[in-house]
Amino acid sequence: MDKKIPVISIVGIHNSGKTTFIERIIKILSEKGYKVGTIKHDPKGKAKTDTPGKDSYRMFNAGARQVVLASPKKITSYIRDDDYDPSDIIEKYMVSDLDIIIIEGFKGYRNTDKFEVIRKEEDRDLVISEKEGLKGVITDYYPYPLKFDVNRPEDFAEYIEKHYIKAEKHL
């Protein structure tokens, strides 16, 4: 990758609202003209990414190391790789013209600032610490020096824009 793309992580427990919050951030930033990339962690491999019986599914399951499915409005790539971390994914697979990459999950990944989603109904403590890269929380109650209201994603989007996306980016 030629340019250094800023990367942040949104972490939290299962069903804490990470994906919904990220989806709202992507929409806000995209509407402002920014190019947002995401990496979604699926540690248990449960996400459906291809349809059984379809050609790309059959090719991958026959043993192909990579299958690229090219459609008029999107390109999907299935890659057989069992030894990776987010740095590998960013270096090998992310397009280079992105303004920001948002990682969902990968709590143990150390090379990024992390923001934890924690909601009142979860009634729990944080799952990561400052030592592990915690920069702030996205919450509806939790006290933390840097916190964002989970119901006001526009505030977090503004923070990302100001602190992570290059200021010289012209819209």
Rank of each mutant, 00 (worst) to 15 (best):
I101F: 01
G105I: 04
I13Q: 08
L134W: 12
S9P: 00
D125E: 15
K135S: 08
L134S: 11
T19F: 00
I90L: 14
I5K: 02
R152V: 01
Y142G: 01
D149T: 12
R24A: 14
K54A: 08
F60Y: 15
I39L: 15
Y109K: 03
V150A: 10
K107N: 11
K27H: 15
V68F: 12
E121R: 11
T51G: 00
F115W: 01
T38D: 03
N15R: 15
T20H: 11
I79H: 08
A64H: 05
D125F: 10
E122S: 14
G53H: 04
V67E: 07
K54H: 06
F21D: 04
F156N: 00
P86F: 01
S77T: 12
E161F: 04
V67F: 07
K44W: 12
V117S: 01
G63W: 06
Y164S: 07
E158R: 11
E154G: 07
Y93P: 03
T49S: 06
G17M: 05
P52Q: 08
G37R: 01
L134T: 08
R24I: 08
I5P: 02
L29W: 05
E168N: 10
D83L: 06
G136E: 03
D85R: 07
M59F: 12
H163E: 09
V11A: 02
D2G: 14
N111A: 11
T139K: 05
K135W: 04
K27S: 13
K40E: 04
A70P: 01
D83N: 09
V150H: 01
T19R: 03
S16G: 13
S30W: 13
P86D: 02
K3F: 11
I75W: 13
D113T: 03
D88K: 15
I160W: 04
K92N: 07
T20P: 14
D81P: 03
K114G: 00
K40L: 06
K46I: 05
Y141M: 05
K114W: 05
Y57C: 06
G12E: 01
F115E: 00
K35Y: 09
H14Q: 14
A70C: 12
L146R: 10
K73Q: 13
V68C: 15
K18M: 03
G133C: 09
G108Q: 10
K74M: 10
K46S: 07
L98A: 02
V137G: 05
H163L: 00
V68Y: 10
K48T: 12
I89N: 02
K3A: 13
D85A: 07
T20L: 14
I5N: 02
I5E: 01
K74W: 06
I5F: 00
H170L: 15
M59W: 09
L146N: 08
F148M: 07
